[in-house]
Design a protein around this nucleic acid. Sequence first.
DNA 1: TGTACATCAGTGAACGCGCGTTCACTGATGTAC
DNA 2: TGTACATCAGTGAACGCGCGTTCACTGATGTAC
Lengths: 216, 216
Amino acid sequence: MAAISGGKTYHHGDLRNALICAAVDLATDGGPERVVLREAARRVGVSPTAAYRHFDGRGELLRTVKLHAQCRLADSMERAAAGEPGADDPALAAERRLVALCRGYVGFAVDEPGLYRAAFCVPRPAEAEESVVGRAAATEPEIRAFTLLREALEGLAKVGVPRPEGRTAAGAAAWSAVHGLSLLLLDGPLRRLPAQRRDDVVESTLAMVVSGTRGL
Amino acid sequence: MAAISGGKTYHHGDLRNALICAAVDLATDGGPERVVLREAARRVGVSPTAAYRHFDGRGELLRTVKLHAQCRLADSMERAAAGEPGADDPALAAERRLVALCRGYVGFAVDEPGLYRAAFCVPRPAEAEESVVGRAAATEPEIRAFTLLREALEGLAKVGVPRPEGRTAAGAAAWSAVHGLSLLLLDGPLRRLPAQRRDDVVESTLAMVVSGTRGL
DNA sequence: TGTACATCAGTGAACGCGCGTTCACTGATGTAC
DNA sequence: TGTACATCAGTGAACGCGCGTTCACTGATGTAC
């Protein structure tokens, strides 16, 4: 039942959440591979063993961080879209929303590189193979970031822009563009671009997405 | 001087290259983090220490693999472009070349995921920080894959398609699209797409690139 | 209200692992006289 | 052509590190009577 409220409760009170927070911090400054069970426990001031009361092991801790990071990414997108002024022309409004979502996506990647990478990290081999057997090929829930992009494109479709048959693919294309851009900016050869040039590249890419999906 | 020729020469004959090959093999099936100095030495049948005659350490070995992977990527792009039939209309020819290069890019990523990831791996923190001081902010050589894309866009420009001021940015945008697409297909949520659907997504993305850069 | 007991959430020490790297060394090769 | 020696390319054992995980345990909490 665990009274969730603050302070030092009896044992620890909320160790699971404390560990998640520590692990998220680790990911924030160092990416997913920095998420280390022992270090998380250390930061919370607890023995490594204690973590096993709350998680199956390192894998589950990391998976939790990954989900958290995905939420944060989607939040950033929605925040960016919420700040966008509407427009009388619904097609223009839909286009603006799409662009804003993309800007929120790339913005999150640039501001929180570690978390961003965690959102897309991939479990180590052993686990991945077996889990397909174990969980009957569990279909992973669609990432909200992608849902947002897809819906924005559907909004465009309503006012007649992208043709229905290409719509899912258009979503994937748009996603590819912002995802690739983000990674080139973070880890890739665009890493050292000064902020001004970076914004240019971001805007060009978004222009490509908008005018490019118009044709699909 | 080392007579490079085959067989077991005196000491080893060509240990440096043998280690590189082993390390490339490791990267090929496991990505950059699988590149482990001890394992490379083991595969060649040599003590780990021997590697230090030829490399500064693990970092240098990995950097060598990375360069190799980048070359392979560019080769794949050029091969794809070479197979493309020309066209009477130079604008069409230029567009086809761009698309072929992109197809070669994504094709390499899909066929050689480990190497592809190695081509874009990023050195561990400590090294990165210090090397900037040590090598006076050495500008890394431009990746040939990007040069190819940029030149293809310049080809398009000659026949009047993208406007000059946006050309570099257009290159980055195109690169972003194929890079992001590749990673979503490899590690990301598009990982489990059946081959047919995957091709659809690839073609849509390429269509977005072409029609999208036309407007820049 | 008080006591006995089950349960839950932690501890601390230890395991085995594989890594990168360093040490003092040895044995093969090539070179000068 | 033969010998002494420098150099080069390897060996083998060891270091320290930090990790994930398991073990038998202890101490605090909540519950039944």
